[in-house]
Design a protein around this nucleic acid. Structure first.
Lengths: 193, 193
DNA sequence: AGCCTTAGGCTAACGGTGTTAGCTTCACTT
DNA sequence: AAGTGAAGCTAACACCGTTAGCCTAAGGCT
């Protein structure tokens, strides 16, 4: 992901990410991005063909991180499953429901830790062709493994994405506790016994 | 919804809707909107304080229509439930699974019939205070009725919204048949027996 | 009748956006 | 020494939402 970019280009992406994460999508402007690097906006075009290309880099970065977070959650299981009982060598297969809960928590946590990046990653037309091959599948694999078939995985993904977007957009009644909704959705969509 | 708007304002909203539905959100521009009405952009500000106010009107319109579509689906049930057996007077309570399938189909159908309007309605910060009171609840009621508790309704709503957004954004593998994913999600999230 | 207010248009302009054209400058290679 | 490419620069274009200020026609009031 990083190897195909020149060092300067990587600096630009890093600055873009700071800008995006701190001040939101509206703040991610070619002029402001250039400002932060001490250059003028047109100079950015020596490194990227257009703004979308910079954003694609951010999307790839975010997907990579999200994939890692999900893989970690899959390996670990939810926090409470790492209790004293399993402390001395965990060999038995984890309960799918636990894995599912862990994946959901990790997904939600990532989205809320990086709301603007999540929005950029997961909303709007998808630049599939410009992304490193395999990244998309990698992000999806943990979910597919735990729920079994692809259709169920898609349903679960849609649920998680929908919950995050509705939460981020303040679409649920203000002040509502959404823990139960997450729990209901995740347990309903795990692999059926 | 329409009564608080002057006739001219209603014309503007109508033109805005045509623009949005035909050419997408990027085409909904104050200058282009004015063009379509034979006036200049600044004149629009005699009728609306800003562009967001026009969009709020469109959002209200869309939510109203979606609410109607869902209410109709709730009353009718899915197409196949209106078969010969029920033709002569339907009194028995409909199967929740059927109602759920009908609601899902109606939701999906509305979103795909008006993709740009759906996006405007359902993505981005929600102007709750500027919308006609009760409209939000009205849209949600059919779903709440069929699934029983609010948490389950939120989960189901998130699922449907997520499916639509992922579909609209081309996030699923190209060419994938998403019927099964919809079916799995909807049946998993109806009220449990 | 005459006046005055208001609705609803207009032009000009501001600051912001992404982007292009064309110039320069500097380092490195031949 | 000459030449070349990378990476900066300024100026500018077309577009965006929005504001200020002007004008004109219609309607109500004295």
């Amino acid at each position: 992901m990083a190897d195909r970019l020149s060092p300067r280009a990587r600096q630009i992406v890093a600055a873009a990410r700071e800008l995006l994460e701190k001040d939101g999508a509206d703040a991610l402007t070619m002029r402001r991005l250039a400002d932060r690097l001490g250059i003028r906006a047109p100079s950015l075009y020596k490194h990227f063909p257009d703004k979308a290309a910079v954003e694609v880099e951010l999307i790839a970065e975010g997907m990579e991180e999200l994939a890692r977070a999900l893989e970690a959650a899959e390996a670990t299981g939810p926090a409470k499953a790492t209790g004293p009982a399993e402390a001395a060598g965990r060999v038995e297969a984890a309960d799918p429901a636990d894995v599912m809960a862990g994946l959901g928590a990790a997904y939600r946590a990532y989205a809320f830790a990086h709301p603007h990046l999540y929005r950029l990653m997961s909303a709007g037309p998808f630049p599939r062709d410009l992304l490193p091959p395999g990244l998309e599948d990698r992000t999806a694999m943990p979910l597919v493994r735990v729920v079994g078939d692809p259709d169920r995985a898609r349903a679960a993904w849609a649920f998680a994405h929908g919950m995050v977007m509705l939460e981020l957009d303040g679409r649920f009644p203000p002040g509502a506790d959404l823990g139960p909704a997450w729990r209901v959705g995740l347990t309903a969509l795990v692999r059926p016994v």
